[in-house]
């Protein structure tokens, strides 16, 4: 069931989906934002606008498929099935209701974090997505990352307190001066 929170179209992300789909001749493009344990579709483009709209707000586990690999590794990738299927890409299969013939997936990131992924499937000519596709998508994925950050997307992906505590502990050990500066900033923010 789509999350109604995300039913509202976000123009910049929508434009990224449209542009990349038209450039690559992909049948469908969607952009997912990392939200807790999920990836949620926040923009989509397809020849059938109603279908694209129906994708908004759909949630998938952030551990599934090509999108999870890109989210975790930070590396863009283009895949085309050979003798193997890409059935392991559960998200693409769930979105399309079938296995895609080709996939390209790039990270949407700011300078520090991967906030989401942009995924496209099925070039019109039936061939694989190429280097030009990957490069353009990588650049527009960066634009999408900035847009996700501006819209507060980064806040949705804040690590849980135990992870923050662990990172602070590590920082205190590795770089005490920087830790002290950070602690001072936090004190000021908390009004202490």
């Amino acid at each position: 069931m789509p999350d109604p929170t995300y039913a509202q179209s976000r123009p910049t992300l929508q434009a990224v989906c449209h542009t990349t789909r038209e450039f690559t001749t992909a049948s469908t493009a969607w952009l997912m934002e990392a939200d807790g344990d999920d990836l949620v579709v926040v923009a989509a483009s397809c020849t059938d606008p109603a279908f694209a709209a129906s994708l908004l707000g759909r949630r998938f586990p952030r551990t599934d498929g090509t999108a999870a690999m890109v989210l975790q590794s930070g590396q863009p990738v283009a895949l085309q099935p050979g003798s193997a299927s890409v059935a392991s890409d559960a998200i693409a299969t769930a979105v399309l209701g079938r296995q895609p013939a080709s996939i390209v997936c790039v990270p949407c990131a700011d300078d520090e974090r991967v906030l989401g992924v942009l995924q496209l499937v099925d070039r019109a000519d039936g061939g694989p997505f190429g280097f030009d596709d990957l490069e353009l998508l990588s650049m527009l994925g960066a634009v999408a990352g900035a847009s996700l950050l501006e819209s507060g997307g980064g806040l949705l992906d804040v690590p849980p307190p135990d992870v923050i505590g662990r990172e602070l502990s590590r920082l205190a050990d590795a770089d005490p001066n920087r830790y002290a500066a950070l602690a001072r900033v936090i004190e000021v923010m908390l009004g202490q």
């Binding site: 990738v77 895949l79 003798s83 890409v86």
Partner: peptide, 11 residues
């Protein structure tokens, strides 16, 4: 790739 198959990849 997975399932003892092959894929064509770019990256």
């Amino acid at each position: 790739w997975l399932d003892h198959g092959l894929l064509t990849t770019t990256g």
